[in-house]
Structure formats: C-alpha cells, structure tokens
Computed example of a mutant assay.
Amino acid sequence: MEFNFLAILVAAIVPIFIGFLWYNPKTFGNAWMHASGLTTESLKGGNMIKIFVVTFILSFMLAFILPSLVIHQMGAYSLTQGDLGALPSYDAFLKDYGMAFRTFKHGTFHGVISGIFLALPIIGINALFERKSAKYIFINSGYWILTLGIMGAIICGWK
C-alpha cells in the first residue's frame, strides 16, 4: 500500500478552500470575528502570503497523517513497517480486504469522527483557557469537522 501523494496534495488545499467559505462574512465570518474579539481592521494587518504558505504546509502535514486514520489497510501496512513482502499473511490480508471500505463515504465518516474526537477537544480546551465562548468553539470545531470529513473522503476514496 502506497500513499496517494496527489490525493494528499488535493486534500491539503481543502482547509484553505473551506476556510474561505466558512469564515466568509456571508456565512460565519462576522460571528467568528465577534467571538474571537477581532475586527476587520485587525485582520487586514496580517501578512497573507505568509499565512497561506504556512497554512498549506500545516494542512499538508494533516493530510499526510490522515491515511492512518481513514484507511483501514494502513494498519496492516504499518505492522509490516513498510516491508510489503515481509510475510505471506500480509498478501493474504490484502487479497481478502485490499480495497474494502476504500470509499469516499467511509473516508468522510472517519474524517468527521476525527474532527469530533480530535479537533473539537483540542479547540475546546484551548478556548476554555483563552476564555472564549461556546460560539467560538462551535464555529471553529464545525469548520474542522467539515474540513476533515472532506479531506478524509478525498484520501480514502481516491484510489
């Protein structure tokens, strides 16, 4: 089993695209700015090239680790430590289950579960210590639950 680097690159673009839609003033942008304590003027002061480059790098890192969460076969692959010919049982496993659960739907499911059980607690804990509101937690967590669902779909379903 090999990484689909093209799927990972495409999935790494998803957070930027969804963020553009999610944090747009016509969707959740104004509510997010209010919950974050930001203003339109304060947001204009950022170096957007740096922000988008670093965002893409971090998104790529996230997309790179997602196969281990959304593709079941990665568990068998990790057991062999990348030596695919290590045991005949690995070949037998792939013969029986090679592309099982490799669908966009299944990837979406695991991506959403990752968002709920990874992103939500991390954002929630940080927000509690930063004294942010529940609205802040739900807006940011909702973004990551949706984003990870789409990223998971791309990575798991794109064979």
Rank of each mutant, 00 (worst) to 15 (best):
I150V: 12
G152I: 05
Y143W: 10
I125M: 03
N30L: 11
M99H: 15
A63F: 02
S133C: 14
M99K: 15
F56W: 05
I113F: 09
G46P: 02
I150K: 04
T147V: 12
G149H: 04
Y136I: 04
G37Y: 11
G75C: 05
W144N: 02
L66M: 08
F101K: 09
F101T: 02
R102I: 03
F3M: 09
I18R: 04
G152V: 06
M48P: 13
G149T: 03
I113W: 04
W32K: 11
A7G: 03
Y77N: 12
F64T: 07
I71D: 04
F104G: 09
G19D: 09
F20P: 06
G29K: 03
I125V: 09
I137Y: 08
F52W: 10
R131L: 12
A134I: 08
T80A: 11
L43A: 08
M99F: 02
Q73W: 06
M74E: 15
K44H: 12
D96F: 12
V70Y: 00
K159A: 14
L118Y: 13
I155C: 00
P67H: 10
I137V: 12
K159C: 06
M61P: 14
W32V: 10
N47W: 09
L69C: 14
L128H: 09
G29P: 06
F64L: 07
S141F: 00
A86P: 05
L38Q: 13
L84D: 08
F60K: 00
W158P: 14
A63W: 01
A35G: 04
G142K: 02
V10T: 10
T108C: 02
Y77P: 03
M33L: 14
G157W: 01
L84H: 13
S42F: 06
H106M: 15
G37T: 15
S78K: 10
M151V: 04
L58P: 05
I71R: 03
W158E: 07
S68L: 08
I8V: 03
F101V: 15
S78H: 14
L146E: 14
E130K: 13
S78V: 12
G157I: 00
G107C: 07
S141T: 07
G29H: 02
Y97N: 14
A119L: 03
L79R: 10
I139G: 06
W22Y: 01
G142E: 11
L6F: 07
T147R: 03
F3Q: 09
F64V: 01
S89W: 01
V112L: 09
L62R: 01
K135L: 04
F28W: 11
V53T: 11
P88C: 11
H106G: 12
Y77T: 04
P121S: 06
T80D: 02
K50H: 10
V14S: 00
F20W: 12
L43T: 11
P121R: 12
G82Y: 06
R102F: 12
